[in-house]
């Protein structure tokens, strides 16, 4: 499923549309608030689902070549997180849904 489509499904705000946002296809997802766990995941271009609102999420996304970052729980973001997303070309989304529910919807949308 396309990332843009999934964003709609999750009622997510698009805080930054990164490189190739419209064509990006979601193939794998990692949901964690621990960036070290995200670094452990050995799949190309994952979507990172997290309730951690920190610059380091974008840094981690950049390092692992993530498709994008979905912040759950409608968290407030540090002011430069969006700037960093723009600098690194990482898509940044924010949904009001709690993490569990966001994950369920993603799972359904991706036919897990």
């Amino acid at each position: 499923m396309k990332l843009a489509e999934l964003a709609r499904e999750l009622q997510a705000e698009i805080l930054h549309a990164g490189r190739g946002f419209d064509e990006s296809e979601v193939r794998s997802v990692v949901a964690s608030d621990l960036m070290s766990d995200v670094l452990l995941v050995d799949r190309p271009t994952p979507l990172i689902v997290t309730s951690l609102a920190s610059d380091q999420v974008i840094r981690t996304a950049d390092i692992v070549g993530a498709l994008g970052v979905l912040i759950v729980n409608g968290k407030n973001l540090p002011s430069n997180m969006k700037t960093l997303a723009a600098e690194t070309g990482i898509t940044l989304l924010r949904t009001p849904l709690p993490k569990f529910e966001a994950c369920i919807r993603i799972g359904r949308a991706l036919d897990y």
């Binding site: 621990l34 960036m35 070290s36 920190s54 380091q56 981690t60």
Partner: peptide, 15 residues
Amino acid sequence: SLGFGAGMGLPNIRR
């Protein structure tokens, strides 16, 4: 609280 300090740093580097 920043998402680090899970004790995975050195093991991840080695991996």
